[in-house]
Simulated assay, not measured.
Amino acid sequence: MQLSRTDVLLMAFCTGLIVANIYYCQPLVILVAREFNLTESHAGKITYLTQAGYALGLFLIVPLGDMFERRKQILMITGLAVASLLLAAFSHSFLLLQIACVLIGASSIVPQLILPMAANLTSDEKRGPTIGIIMSGLLIGILASRAVSGSIGFLWGWRTMYFIAAGICSLLLLLMAKRFPLSRPSFEGSYRELMLSMWHYIKTQPILREASVINFLAFSVLSAFWTTMVLFLANPPFSFQTLQIGLFGIAGAAGALAAPLVGKLSSGKNPRKNLLIGLVLQLISIATFYFTKSHLYLFVAGIILIDIGQQAIHVTNQTRIYTLIPEARNRLNTIFMSVSFVGASVGSAFGLWLWDKGQWPLFCLGTALVVLLNIFIYNFYSHKIKA
């Protein structure tokens, strides 16, 4: 079976709405801090706990897509997402909210089951563009989630956002049950053998190792920014409310528009060159953040650049690993995305630490050093890897 254009757009739609669950919390940190009488940086723990939960779900659950029928797995995990979102909405303590956020992250891994499904049902020459389209849906979901949650949190409180998210996932559950294709598992061993096989791929696939390390550091920079920018904009000279902060997510829409183009370029003879372009864009974006001061046009320009840079890195790397071992795409994606979102979780914590120690100037310096380290790693692998 080959995916039609409608199928690909539907997968992009579902991917965007489900991945949004991970990012609703970011503009809501200020409101959560007020309700539970916490500092904003302490309340910010929910951002990296959600990402840590996502990494945990990727590592433990996504490999099962090679072992079990994917549509059934997608529906079961989406049901768990509904329950986790409702738990967050009803949380009566910050501890319970933190637990709910870990579960929300772990149950929001459905996009990482959809992507291998799409890759398996797409021809080699169309795989890059297809992944690019679905990644556009994913990025739009990330960006829209911040704008929507900031607005809803400002108008009706942070709990309302989680109630709405639970309703959205319930509707998606019905839509995916009706439209998603059945798939045949490619692995016939035990769960233990499944997990052990991933270590074999880590040891034997240098492209997988390079892509994962570069994505770890790139995601850490992006996540550090989106977590810390909430504190930057909530304090003088801006002193913005959650409604205004959330709207800045829209500025990253250029990254979503770039994803299909990057996907096409990633299907070329030397997709690896896109990585250096993405890393340079990240470095330029941090420079614009450093010189922002009260000039919001520089801040918006930086958001556009950092999101385009991240798309160039992520879509390129994901397309590269999908060409390695077709029958193990879920496991390869598990390694790649688990490492990426551990990087995101570490980045959020790192960004909050930099903010506490030296606020925005130290944040910019710290993240710039991470990007420079990533460029060094890229150059280190250049003489070993060409694709």
Rank of each mutant, 00 (worst) to 15 (best):
Met1Asp: 08
Val8Gly: 04
Leu10Pro: 00
Cys14His: 01
Cys14Ser: 14
Thr15Gly: 13
Ile22Asp: 06
Tyr23Ser: 10
Pro27Asn: 07
Glu35Pro: 05
Gly44Met: 11
Gly44Asp: 11
Ile46Gly: 04
Ile46Ala: 06
Leu49Pro: 11
Ala52Cys: 08
Tyr54Glu: 06
Leu56Thr: 15
Leu64Cys: 13
Met67Ile: 09
Gln73Ala: 11
Met76Arg: 15
Leu86Arg: 04
Ala88Gly: 12
Phe90Ser: 13
His92Met: 06
Ile109Gln: 06
Val110Ser: 10
Pro111Cys: 05
Leu115Asp: 02
Ala118Pro: 06
Ala119Ile: 10
Asp124Tyr: 12
Pro129Tyr: 05
Ile134Glu: 12
Ser136Trp: 00
Gly137Gln: 09
Ile142Tyr: 03
Arg146Pro: 07
Val148Cys: 01
Val148Met: 13
Phe154Ala: 14
Phe154Thr: 00
Leu155Glu: 06
Gly157Leu: 10
Arg159Thr: 03
Tyr162Asp: 03
Ile164Ala: 10
Ala165Met: 09
Ser170Ala: 15
Leu175Gln: 09
Phe180Cys: 04
Arg184Ile: 15
Tyr191Met: 13
His200Asp: 12
Ile202Gln: 08
Lys203Gly: 05
Ala211Phe: 05
Ile214Ser: 03
Asn215Thr: 13
Leu217Arg: 01
Ser220Gly: 12
Ser220Lys: 00
Thr227Lys: 08
Met229Gln: 14
Asn235Pro: 00
Asn235Leu: 10
Asn235Ser: 15
Pro236Met: 08
Pro237Ser: 12
Phe238Trp: 15
Gln241Ser: 14
Thr242Ser: 15
Thr242Cys: 03
Leu243Arg: 14
Leu243Asp: 07
Ala251Tyr: 05
Gly252Leu: 09
Ala256Asp: 07
Leu257Asn: 03
Ala259Gln: 10
Lys264Gln: 12
Gly268His: 10
Gly278Ala: 05
Gly278Asn: 01
Leu279Phe: 07
Ser285Ala: 15
Ser285His: 08
Ala287Gly: 15
Thr292Gln: 13
Ser294His: 13
Phe299Ala: 12
Val300Asn: 05
Ala301Pro: 01
Leu305Tyr: 09
Ile308Pro: 00
Gly309Met: 02
Ile313Lys: 00
His314Pro: 00
Val315His: 00
Gln318Gly: 07
Glu327Val: 12
Ala328Cys: 10
Thr334Asn: 13
Thr334Gln: 10
Ile335Arg: 13
Phe336Trp: 13
Met337Asp: 02
Ser338Asn: 09
Ala344Arg: 01
Leu354Pro: 10
Leu362Lys: 13
Ala368Val: 06
Ile375Thr: 03
Ile385Gln: 10
